[in-house]
Design a protein around this nucleic acid. Structure first.
Length: 716
DNA sequence: CCTAGTAACATTTTT
DNA sequence: TGTTACTAGG
């Protein structure tokens, strides 16, 4: 661990070296896609620690995902040794949470406060709407609330600027509604996502002694993806960066700003030198990642944007495969094209990523890949922690940690069903007591009385376990509620759900305490999943890479939204759905700034590719089960011809035949041993067939009993 | 109280 | 199309 400075600088180019050697004062690193940003960041922190006498406990590195934070630490440990574990690497939200867990009582936050996820947030809004006798959709209200909280403006100021009607509610009603929402939220000992940063700011502003302490932990601040910071995050950093000598290094790329809907303000990065006078600027424009063909396309795309700083990525990898464009007749055909092309190029499959604008597009792609027997994994979408069975169990944990959590209480009481239902819950809600106390006070008879006692006893047992390891907590919960038996009775696919429960136990074991586990759950993003990791060489050698190997995730095609692809790279990228109304999305056509953000999204997608890039669109696509005719994206039209070529592999090797149609007369047509295909479970073999009931073995899934009347089972 | 069936709704992106 | 919200009947 005593290697010289030369070793640290050797793998870097001149611009990177300059940035790495930056010591005190503000600096902006404008790092184009694939310009070795992560390496520069890691080496710079290593430089501070190794050669500038900075203590690990003085460094705060804010990253975009928790996974990025962990990787940063791992690589630092690799460079400077285990002491680097003390570096504070976190997302804005987990950093804020940590501050609140440590000092939140100054604001009157209860120690066990929970974080409500989006679903909880909407549920609560629905309740408040009902309570106030208002008719409106919670979705748009939630969007308004989030924007308000992310804007960093006082709620009053935000209301001033808001239109007279939001989500069909007059402004004044909305104001009252949100005030009530906030009140109920706190009464339940909860905060929502947007609150995390706001509360941290409030803490800093009202308690200078706390700010002073946190500043000591953040004498050298590093912010990644700075182009995607919003005003609240900006203020958070502003407060932490000491005025006299703000040792702040911001890294980002204005061309990759894609979170406008989350109030990210691209001006934060554009105005950096004004905000932090004397800031040094370092530009990384040499691209190590992509071939020249890919980069020329990327440069042509982004050059169409008006609002940007001139910047051109210089390719280090000359030539390369041409970028190919495929026109499909239908979205299904587009998906089959992807599968066919992956099959043609062959394994290892983690070289491939399929990127799309909306989550809904994943379904066809997943199906097509499965039909071709290609292992694939959707990153994001319905996350692990959003599965019903996982949320059920988490409800108990939440309630044990925070008895005021009425939402968790309701979920816990209802599942598994235990003889306390709708009516009882409504009574409890009307009682204006913490839910458990209300239940205790409720006079019940017979079976219900027994159910009540049993539930209260269970919660007491769980409370006793709540300070211990999370794993023990959940194991007790599982046996006390006989939860697995409940799953078996309630769900056809209980085996899958059982596996999710086991996964939860593993995650709990890793997290330690119940509180830590819940926090981690709340702040784990889809991009934090193991499966999100790219197949880059340097990472494949890391410990995380080995772990993936064992988990069997290394050999899978990754499917994800363009947003989730940020920061990743793949040898082969398919960018699908390049259609008007999809990319650019129909909701982003009205305003130029939105349109330009869509273009940046396209740019981000293109720059993920290292060797090969496929673009595609379909002339026909189903939306809500209704057929829609589409048109090629304007982003493709505006690219000079010659930067990509039309491609159609079909004449040479005929595409997969359309899926066989369902049999007309279901009864008795499947025979034992027959190969069949199920849209959800994929290919399988019939084990037994009795009338309408067929037992099928699916690869990697196991036995499933299916009713032909319902299951869309097709012969293969 | 619970379940199964039907009606209504939803998709832009996410820490 | 897939999921959730609501209702009637057991």
């Amino acid at each position: 661990m005593d290697a010289s400075l030369d070793d640290l600088l050797a793998p870097l180019n001149e611009a990177q070296r300059q940035a790495v050697l930056h010591f005190e004062g503000p600096a902006l690193v404008v790092a184009g896609a694939g310009s070795g940003k992560t390496r520069t960041v890691v080496h710079r922190v290593a430089y501070l620690l190794r050669h500038r006498g900075v203590y690990p406990t003085e460094v705060l590195a804010v990253t975009f995902t928790n996974k990025a934070a962990n990787e940063l630490k791992e690589r630092l440990v690799h460079l400077v040794g285990p002491a680097a574990k003390e570096v504070w690497a976190a997302t804005f939200h987990s950093a804020a949470l940590r501050v609140l867990r440590a000092y939140g009582e100054h604001l009157g936050l209860r120690p066990g406060f929970v974080i409500f996820d989006e679903e909880d947030q909407e549920t609560l809004l629905k309740e408040v709407l009902k309570e106030m006798g208002l008719e409106a959709r919670p979705g748009p209200i939630k969007a308004f609330l989030d924007r308000a909280k992310n804007s960093g403006k006082p709620l009053e100021a935000f209301f001033q600027e808001a239109p007279e009607y939001v989500a069909g509610l007059p402004k004044e009603r909305l104001r009252a509604l949100l005030a009530r929402y906030q009140e109920v939220l706190r009464a339940q000992g909860a905060v929502d996502f947007g609150d995390l940063l706001l509360l941290a700011l409030e803490l800093f502003e009202r308690h200078p002694e706390v700010l002073k302490k946190v500043r000591q932990r953040a004498r050298f601040i590093h912010v990644d993806e700075y182009q995607d910071t919003n005003p609240v995050q900006y203020r958070f950093i502003r407060l932490l960066a000491d005025e006299k000598t703000p040792n702040l290094v911001a890294v980002g790329d204005p061309d990759q700003s894609i979170y406008g809907f989350r109030a990210a303000d691209i001006r934060n990065i554009l105005d950096f030198t004004r905000d932090f006078p004397g800031a040094k600027i370092y530009r990384l424009e040499e691209n190590y990642r992509s071939t020249e063909a890919i980069l020329r396309l990327a440069n042509a795309i982004i050059a169409q944007n008006q609002a940007r700083l001139e910047k051109t990525l210089r390719p280090l990898r000359k030539g390369g495969e041409p970028v190919r464009l495929f026109e499909a007749t239908t979205a299904r055909e587009e998906a089959q094209f992807v599968a066919q092309e992956v099959a043609r190029l062959g394994p290892p499959y983690d070289r491939y990523a399929v990127l799309y604008r909306t989550n809904a597009q994943s379904r066809l792609l997943e199906e097509a890949l499965r039909l071709s027997g290609i292992p694939a994994q959707v990153v994001g979408g319905v996350g692990f922690f959003e599965r019903a069975e996982v949320k059920d169990l988490l409800a108990y944990a939440r309630l044990a940690v925070n008895p005021l959590d009425a939402l968790a209480f309701r979920r816990a009481v209802k599942t598994p069903p235990r003889g306390l239902g709708q009516t009882t819950l409504e009574m409890i809600q009307s009682m204006d007591l913490p839910p458990l106390e209300a239940l205790r006070a409720l006079p019940l008879k017979g079976g219900q009385a027994r159910s009540k006692e049993a539930f209260l006893r269970l919660m007491e047992e769980l409370s006793a376990l709540v300070e211990g390891p999370a794993e023990a907590f959940f194991r007790h919960l599982l046996s006390a509620t006989d939860y697995l038996a409940y799953l078996e009775g309630a769900y056809r696919d209980h085996l899958d759900r059982r596996e999710n429960v086991e996964e939860l136990l593993r995650a709990a074991k890793e997290a330690g305490s119940v509180q830590a586990f819940l926090d981690r759950v709340a702040l784990t993003a889809s991009a934090d999943q193991e499966a999100a990791s790219p197949a880059g060489e340097h990472r494949a050698a890391s410990p995380a890479g080995e772990h993936r190997e064992k988990a069997g995730l290394s050999g899978k095609v990754r499917l994800m939204t363009l947003h989730n692809a940020k920061g990743l790279e793949f040898p082969v990228v398919f960018l699908v759905g390049l259609e008007e109304n999809l990319l650019p999305h129909r909701n982003s056509l009205a305003r130029l700034e939105d349109l330009e953000e869509e273009r940046r999204l396209f740019y981000v997608g293109v720059t993920r590719a290292k060797e090969r890039l496929y673009l595609s669109y379909a002339l026909e696509r189903e939306v809500f089960g209704k057929r829609e005719y589409t048109r090629m994206s304007r982003f493709l039209e505006e690219i000079p011809k010659g930067l990509y070529e039309a491609y159609d592999p079909r004449p040479a090797s005929p595409g997969l035949p359309p899926p066989p149609s369902r049999r007309e007369d279901p009864e008795g047509v499947f025979k034992g041993g027959e190969r069949v295909y199920h849209p959800k479970f994929g290919p399988g073999r019939v084990v037994a067939a009795r009338g309408e009931e067929v037992t099928v073995h699916f690869e990697g899934i196991g036995l499933k009993k299916l009713h032909l009347r319902f299951a869309d089972l097709r012969p293969l």
